[in-house]
Amino acid sequence: MKKMMYISAVTEALAEEMERDESVFVIGEDVDIDGGVWNETAGLLERFGAKRVVGTPISEGAFTGLAAGAALTGLRPVVEFMYGDFIHVAMDQVANQIAKARLMFGGQAKMPVVIRLCACGAGTREGAQHSQFLESWFAHLPGFVVVAPSNAADGKGLMKSAIRSDLPVVFVESRQIYYDIQDVPEGEYTVPIGKAEILRPGEQVTLLSFGYACEKARQAAEMVKDKVDVEVIDLRTLKPLDTETIFKSVEKTGRLIVAHDSPAMCSIGAEVVRRVVAERFDYLDAPPVVVASKDVPIPFNDELEDYTVLSVQDIVDEIMKISVGII
């Protein structure tokens, strides 16, 4: 183990994979200048050269298409969006090309692209166009694997797995954890795709989360620990969902809350609830709940933004509500 920032842990994964596999390259705006705007590609240019650390003009459509074409012809691109929000400019390449190639061509085409959505999420007063979490879009599009690390070790381990995946992976990053210093395993370390992790075992309420919201979930569970015993689970992979872990927990607790930073409408939370209701209905002791940010673009003003974005208190409130009768 060593202590490192989340962002550096992901860079380490990139470096190790680029070292291991010559076909891996990184492409995006400013990735070759000063280690990128988030320090997310620090040292890569010096080590691997401009052919494998490709800085681009502000042409998201073109460089995402480039990644798709390169993947079809044997390379393994990691395409970086400086903010997740900017992926919309490249949505044809993402949604019609990358997502569909494998099926359309009868399972013959490989599309090992990692789409790295940097700096997702609100809370930094950057306004409506720089504050979104977009994981639901890509989970909804058939064809993608979607992962969302909540900590530095998972950032490293999931990035390595994402690069090795032959399916296209959307890698959803939370800006709020970028510079948190945490323990990260050294050398070869992968986190399997499709496996959730129990962050805090508990008996009475299942609290599922992913990305930055895991920290809020953990805090909420701590705040109520004298009253309710909450199990906090980090989904880590959003598609495919680790229903085994989810179901096991719900069978034990009978109470389910899903907490995330994107709005509840058509969300990962909504999907988890759908599956639990369909397949573990008999185990439920209370209606399952999704607690999320409000269904509105993110406003600039502090108070409005704070009101809009999922808070620890929002989660605490839901825990107390769902626990009526057991506390």
Binding site: D85, F86, R125, N301
Partner: peptide
């Protein structure tokens, strides 16, 4: 107060918006 630096707006004076998306 909803927009901030990148989302200024003033219809009367013909300013229909800052933009957070390059090329937007």
């Amino acid at each position: 107060g909803y927009g901030g630096s990148m989302h200024l707006y003033n219809y009367e004076k013909g300013f229909l918006g800052g933009n957070g998306i390059v090329g937007g």
